[in-house]
């Protein structure tokens, strides 16, 4: 365990070197967010007779995007998948086959370090933005929701990481996997709730999405925070989210074993 703490510490050091990049990324990321918020304001203003869109007031809609931004900063995968693919392509994982160090846990420690530094760097721009928009932001409805939100954010981070990790392992078989990373990212972007809250979709479509892991990669914890997912649905959702984490974890382990058999240690 302590060795992974060391990895985490080194990861923080490495990520700190990119703090300016993280700051740019977080700051520029707020611009499209702001444009989307203006878009929603205009939509609500165009329909004065209808104060709610699928159960969201304007304030509720803005709150969705604000909480989503925070959850995304805490859990989003940024560089990890590229680095894993590069490790494999350039033969750098050979050392993990010799050392008593588990590559998945090693990458998870680095992912955690990256998120900590990113969140710290994003704290200033996102924090200013939150304070500016604070009147739309309320705490979760009760302690249960807050606790469930915390649990769900951790599960979201694990799910995000494991899916990207498994995807990056494709590099055992393919030279170039960036297109696959972008395709996955596109699905996560729209079906995960990055672009809009998923429950404004037609109910049939939403029901289909529930069978994929995407809603549990972002939308689900945000829905809990806003009190839109409660009671039985909350318990059931957390169970499904945990099941996805377990499933993808198993998949990641399986793909790794098969990949290692295929691995030829290029350049190593």
């Amino acid at each position: 365990m302590t060795k992974y703490l060391q990895v985490f510490r080194i990861g923080v050091q490495n990520a700190l070197a990119y703090r300016a990049n993280f700051l740019f990324r977080a700051t520029f990321g707020l611009v499209p967010l702001l444009a989307t918020l203006y878009l929603w304001r205009a939509i609500y203003a165009s329909n004065p007779e209808r104060p709610e869109v699928a159960g969201y007031t304007l304030s509720g809609m803005i709150a969705y995007y604000l909480v989503m931004t925070v959850v995304d900063a805490l859990t989003g995968v940024t560089e990890d998948d590229w680095q894993i693919a590069a490790d494999i392509r350039e033969g750098r994982i050979s050392q993990f086959l010799l050392k008593p160090m588990d590559y998945l846990t090693y990458r998870l420690s680095l992912f955690a370090a990256g998120r900590v530094v990113y969140t710290a760097a994003a704290l200033l721009p996102v924090g200013v933005f939150m304070v500016w928009q604070h009147r739309h932001l309320a705490p979760p409805p009760d302690g249960v929701a807050l606790a469930a939100f915390g649990v769900s954010v951790v599960l979201t981070a694990l799910l995000q990481f494991l899916i990207s990790y498994t995807m990056a392992l494709l590099a055992f078989w393919l030279l170039e996997i960036s297109t696959f990373i972008f395709i996955l990212f596109a699905f996560e972007y729209i079906a995960g709730g990055h672009l809009f809250p998923l429950d404004i979709l037609p109910p049939g479509l939403l029901a289909v999405l529930q069978f994929t892991p995407f809603p549990y990669q972002l939308y689900f914890p945000v829905g809990i925070y806003l009190g839109r997912i409660q009671g039985a649905a909350l318990v059931q959702g957390l169970a499904i989210q945990a099941a996805w984490v377990a499933l993808v974890y198993g998949l990641a382990r399986g793909v790794w074993v098969r990949g290692i058999k295929h691995y030829s240690a290029a350049g190593g």
Binding site: F24, A35, A42
Partner: peptide, 21 residues
């Protein structure tokens, strides 16, 4: 980082200008 940050701004271009106060 700056260059990719700018790439984000393309998202603003496809919003109708009338939406902005």
């Amino acid at each position: 980082g700056l260059v990719w940050g700018y790439y984000n701004l393309f998202n603003v271009a496809r919003v109708p200008d009338a939406a902005f106060p």
